[in-house]
């Protein structure tokens, strides 16, 4: 049974697109058939993060409007054959998305894939609501910072009221991914603690992604971080998140690149 996962946050710039690409690639590496869908119409970026920006011919709007068939718009990843991208349109705006069109495309995607990972635009308007509308699972991406937590709280409220599942009276599975976490700042008391954020938002924690240069490096070269460097701290956190999404019980840890003894030994030996 296909699962639709929406990556959302309310606030912009917290790591939704990075998370969509990282989770999508890690799910594909775990053997699942995955499609990542960019819902950020007008400001598409998932194509760039996935390294497929020069291969976009048709987009989500073309498919929802019936100007192209879904298989024509899907871009198959060059590194993983069971990973596809459905890009957003760069020239249209979010009003070009119709409720019926999105519903039909999500239905078609469910027939072809095991996981459909939707990258939501920032905000709480129509675009964000359409991205979450058909979700079975939601991943709320939050930075340990006041404005991000406040916006996430708002998004959680929308997930519980504006999704198809919520309207049917079903529950929608919600998870928190805390990104750009800096353990040193948390130790000094100058950052919201993980427990603070969990207590305030009261949804289960899926992963803590440490602040890392590796995320920037991966976006520079157009490769999901989990493929670009699967051993780095953020990748290990995302890979654990995927195992949890698939139902495994994995102990929660904040991966670090600095303290890992195994990593140090490994690099020394390799040098």
């Amino acid at each position: 049974m296909a699962k639709v996962l929406c990556v959302t946050s309310g606030k912009g710039g917290v790591g939704k697109t990075t998370t969509t690409a990282a989770l999508g690639a890690a799910l594909a590496q775990a053997g699942e058939k995955v499609c990542v869908v960019d819902f950020d119409v007008g400001l598409r970026n998932l194509d760039l993060i996935m390294g497929a920006e020069r291969r976009v011919v048709y987009d989500l709007i073309n498919v929802t409007n019936g100007d192209a068939k879904l298989p024509q718009a899907l871009i198959r990843d060059k590194r993983l054959e069971n990973l596809s991208l459905l890009p957003a349109s760069q020239t249209r705006d979010k009003d070009a998305l119709t409720d019926e069109g999105v519903e039909r495309v999500m239905g078609e995607l469910r027939e072809r894939f095991d996981w459909i990972v939707c990258d939501s635009p920032a905000g709480i308007e129509r675009g964000a609501q359409l991205a979450m509308r058909h979700a079975d699972v939601a991943v709320v991406v939050t930075n340990p910072e006041v404005s991000s937590v406040r916006d996430s709280d708002r998004i959680i409220g929308l997930l519980d009221s504006k999704t198809v599942r919520a309207e049917r009276g079903d529950t929608i599975e919600k998870h928190l991914i805390l990104t750009r976490f800096d353990p040193a700042r948390a130790d000094r008391g100058d950052m919201l603690k993980v427990d603070d954020v969990l207590e305030i938002l009261s949804i289960p924690l899926l992963a803590i992604i440490p602040e890392s240069l590796e995320v920037l490096r991966a976006s520079n070269v157009g490769c999901p971080v989990t493929l670009n460097n699967p051993l780095c701290a953020p990748s290990r956190a995302y890979i654990d998140a995927v195992r949890r999404l698939k139902g495994e019980t994995v102990p929660m840890a904040i991966p670090s690149d600095r303290k890992s003894l195994i990593n140090k030994l490994f690099t020394r030996r390799a040098a």
Partner: peptide, 23 residues
């Protein structure tokens, strides 16, 4: 004390209000 605990208290207060008001 760290500014983190101030952040927590401010958030708890404002969200308690916003949750009632939203919707």
């Amino acid at each position: 004390r760290g500014s983190g605990s101030v952040a927590r208290e401010r958030l708890q207060l404002i969200l308690a209000h916003e949750r009632v008001e939203n919707g």
